[in-house]
Design a protein around this nucleic acid. Structure first.
Length: 213
DNA sequence: ATAGGGATTCTC
DNA sequence: AGAATCCCTATT
């Protein structure tokens, strides 16, 4: 399993070069992999199947971090597709996004939850959650960040090549069928006002136990 | 320089 | 329901 994950080619930049709300549902079922080099304490490979995402658009989307235009923190959102945008929320949790659309047009997709497929004990150790069921270890954007050892230094990293990457869905096990995808409003964006707060830009696999609560 | 607040999670 | 906790962004 680990060897196959290491050998699999990642999704290409062209996959991400579309509007975030179009890429978002296609991300369900893809596999997030992060290999951390030995010697850092919590080294090893972890992987999980993406089961929940949220699309964010450019400055016109008042729920998006791009609403203030290009700033030091959000610069990756205006960069090339397929790269990471990482931020710290509430001073506590690191959240991982994938940048979409062409360079100079802001767009990103927040990875909100994944079903663990490899490195499960490593995820449990990083989360310091000895009694958490396997399927809940990356159930939520902050939990996913901790389980996958996401940090701000990864913001701007290329997710189509490198230690942190996304693999196509369907390669390992069944592909996610479109009928099982459910759309709804994004979480925690009431401050954006209408219509942004109600747009159905959160996508998840219906009934999957790893979706956030 | 400083104030206000957040794309969350855990515990009480 | 409330706390934890840091850094971003806008304003003075």
């Amino acid at each position: 399993m680990i060897a196959r994950l290491r050998a699999s080619p990642a999704l290409s930049p062209t996959f991400f070069a579309r509007p975030s709300r179009e890429v978002a549902p296609d991300l369900l079922g893809t596999i997030l992999v992060h290999e951390v080099a030995a010697g850092l304490g919590t080294d090893g490979l972890v992987a999980g199947r993406i089961v929940e995402v949220e699309a964010y658009d450019g400055p016109q989307d008042r729920a998006s971090h791009a609403r203030a235009g290009r700033t030091p923190r959000t610069a990756p959102m205006f960069g090339p597709p397929g790269h990471a945008y990482v931020y710290l929320v509430y001073g506590l949790h690191h959240c991982l996004n994938v940048v979409t659309g062409p360079s100079d047009e802001a767009g990103a997709i927040l990875l909100r939850a994944a079903a663990p497929v490899a490195g499960i004990e490593l995820m449990r150790a990083r989360r310091s959650a000895p009694h958490e069921p396997d399927e809940r270890l990356a159930a939520g954007p902050g939990r996913l960040g901790a389980a996958f050892a996401i940090e701000r230094g990864l913001s701007g990293a290329d997710l189509t090549a490198g230690a942190l990457r996304l693999l196509p869905g369907g390669t390992f096990g069944a592909a996610t069928d479109r009928a099982a995808i459910r759309a709804g409003p994004r979480i925690g964006v009431a401050y954006a006002g209408e219509p942004w707060a109600s747009l159905p830009w959160r996508f998840r696999r219906e009934g999957d136990p790893s979706v956030s609560r």
